[in-house]
Amino acid sequence: MTIGNVGATGELDLVTGTGPVEEAPEAAKVIQGRSPWRLAYERLRRDRAAVISAVIILIIVVCAIAAPVFASITGHGVNQQFRVIGLKADGFPTGVGGKFPLGTDDQGRDVLVRIAYGARVSLLVGVVTSAITVTIGAILGLMAGYLGRTVDTIVGRIIDVTLSIPFLLFAVALAAVEGGGSITLVITVLALFGWSSVARIVRGQVLSIREREYIEAARSLGAGSWRIMFIDIFPNVIAQVIVYASLLIPLSIVSEATLSYLSIGVQPPTADWGQMIFEAQQGGLYQVAWWFLVFPSLALLITTLAFNILGDGVRDAFDPRADRLFV
């Protein structure tokens, strides 16, 4: 990919003040500009930590997709209880090793297989929530920032209310009303409370972009509000939005795990990391079956950590600083 020679055909004659006219403009060939996306992508590629994290995430995704493979290799279904071989004589789960590589849970189920299936829930919720939240937030932020006055006030008030109600509490309340949790509830609540932060950030940016001359130029050309919002303003905001989205994924994963831990997320017997940790706490079980607590926790930790590092990398790729720690 070449930048081309600025001096070559674009040169202007300083004396007469006119430039050369191209002879044959039929289908003039076109030089690709180096877009800001390209530059960001290259910076990201050079960030070793981010690349490693991306690889780890890829592995996790593969594990999630291939979860049934885990089940078939070990011969244990995800919800299959092995009360005889899985539990010891006193009813407590068997430990690590042997037929159960990561041990069993309180019902004799294979922890390894459940962790693999649990990855599906976490990844799904993480990515879907982030996408929905960011979309809603960006659109409303754009509208609030550009369409001004009434729209701004209404959206602003809604944001205030949303940020005042503790989301977890509301989730608990909503689950009570609905009679129990579910994955839809989790995604809904997370998106419902997440969009306001995005909207605020986007709105702030829109307010400053709105005064720039190129927006004035667009208006003087006759562009309507919606065209300006999405074609002129949005490209200047999207970088921030993407960074926020990538940092929102690990937050969503943790939130989902938390909701499941409180029993208002995914319902049993579906495998879910937060759920498993909750079960491990029951009756102090983790004190004798540490693997049941530790392995799902590790899975959560590694996944979240990887997404966080990647998210940091994305942010640095779009907005490089001189003081980055690990180069």
Partner: peptide, 11 residues
């Protein structure tokens, strides 16, 4: 206006 039309895709 004296610009090179090949630069159509530049920023």
């Amino acid at each position: 206006v004296g610009l090179n039309p090949e630069h159509y895709n530049r920023f």
